[in-house]
Amino acid sequence: MSGHIEFLKRAKELGDYLLVGIHDDQTVNAIKGVNYPLMNLHERVLSVLACRYVDEVVIGAPYSVSEQVLEKVYKVNVVVHGNTPTLEDSDGEDPYKLAKERGIYREIDNPQNTVTTESIIDRIITHRRQFEERQRRKEQKARLEKEAEKAEKAAKVAVALE
């Protein structure tokens, strides 16, 4: 989505190497709800890797930024998140608590007037309802035309029998 690409571009501007953590499907579902994720983990990873601003992806990244992620595995200097609401982790903690305590957390304003997952879902639902209503009207019109045709044939038969 264009909003994600702009976000990744802004994140890349904060450093030399952009490492993007992608949560597994179960984590996204727990965070965002039953209809998420729209794309499975494999599809999301390939989409993010296709972005020119991304250098590497952490598949199945933990929801909370941990000591292990920051130092032992990746040597992270900046942790970036959009200015969307963040849900607490399973312990009731801010998932970015450690990064904030270390002063390496940066929040990026989400791009305005961009396509979001929610806007796409809303558009799909609206178009689906419009399609269903249009099909209902077409079916009703066809049914009325067929009934009128039958009535016309019946009237011709009645006239022919007289």
Rank of each mutant, 00 (worst) to 15 (best):
E133A: 15
D91K: 07
K156V: 01
K146M: 13
L14W: 00
E107Q: 14
K156T: 00
S64N: 02
V80E: 00
V80L: 03
V34L: 12
P111D: 04
E133I: 09
K12S: 06
T27G: 00
T27S: 08
E132P: 01
K75C: 07
S2M: 01
I120Q: 07
V57F: 13
E132L: 15
L8M: 11
Y17C: 09
K75L: 07
V58D: 01
E88M: 10
E149V: 04
S47N: 13
A61L: 11
I31G: 00
D91F: 01
P37W: 06
Q26G: 02
Y63M: 01
Y96L: 14
T126K: 12
P62E: 08
S47M: 13
R137K: 15
R106Q: 11
T86N: 02
E149A: 15
Y105T: 00
L41V: 12
V80S: 01
Q112C: 03
R44A: 09
Q130I: 02
F131H: 08
K150F: 03
K12W: 06
R134D: 05
I108Q: 00
E145D: 11
P95V: 03
Q130F: 03
R136Q: 14
E118N: 08
G103A: 11
I125T: 07
D94R: 02
M39P: 00
V76E: 06
V159L: 12
I31D: 00
E101F: 01
N29K: 15
V28H: 05
K141Q: 14
Y96K: 08
P85S: 03
L18G: 03
P85M: 03
H42G: 05
I120E: 11
S119Y: 05
A30R: 14
D122M: 08
D55M: 05
H4T: 13
E147Y: 06
Q130H: 09
C51T: 09
D94H: 01
K150Q: 13
N113W: 04
A155W: 09
N35D: 11
T126A: 09
S64R: 14
K32W: 11
L87Q: 13
E147V: 01
I121T: 07
N110D: 02
R128Y: 13
A148H: 06
I121M: 10
E88Q: 10
L49H: 01
V69C: 07
A154G: 05
S2C: 01
V20G: 06
R136N: 08
V159Y: 08
I108M: 02
D55H: 13
V159I: 05
K9I: 04
